[in-house]
């Protein structure tokens, strides 16, 4: 699993974790992503999580459920989650697919996601502020 380009990255910015998915993930890789992210939340004592899914061209039922699961687990570990970068076509299809996304907090892009987390967690974002 260590060879080849990284499938996702989890970077820390202050009390916020920014998790970017770089390419289409299969189910096993998605589960790994979830496990890694939950680990990091505890390890880094994160207050907020941003998941950037802009690179995903398909968010099907499994991916939606996984993202929902991540957000729930993160909440139980004391962190808020915002999903950013859902592509317009993907949003359209998620609705058509009939997936329940009510519990997911989303923002248009990284900037708005960070602003939202700063507002709800009071966590400082980065060294500049």
């Amino acid at each position: 699993m260590t060879s080849g380009p990284r499938l996702f990255s989890i970077l820390r910015q202050g009390a916020i974790l920014i998790a970017s998915i770089h390419t289409a993930l299969d189910d096993t890789q998605l589960e790994r992503f979830r496990a890694d992210l939950i680990d990091r939340i505890g390890h880094d004592r994160a207050k907020g999580v941003i998941i950037d899914v802009a690179a995903l061209d398909v968010i099907d039922s499994f991916a939606t459920r996984t993202l929902r699961g991540v957000a729930d687990m993160a909440r139980l570990r004391g962190a808020r989650t915002v999903i950013v970068g859902i592509q317009p076509d993907v949003a359209f299809v998620i609705v058509q697919l009939g997936m329940d996304t009510g519990s997911l907090v989303t923002a248009l892009d990284l900037e708005e996601g960070l602003a939202h987390l700063a507002a709800v967690t009071g966590a400082p974002i980065g060294p500049g502020r």
């Binding site: 189910d27 398909v58 039922s61 317009p88 076509d89």
Partner: peptide
């Protein structure tokens, strides 16, 4: 068109997952 491409890819994803 792009939206249909996403829809088709998603539908294929669902039915293929059931095979696995």
């Amino acid at each position: 068109p792009p939206t249909d491409l996403t829809a088709i890819a998603t539908a294929v994803s669902e039915v293929t997952r059931n095979i696995v």
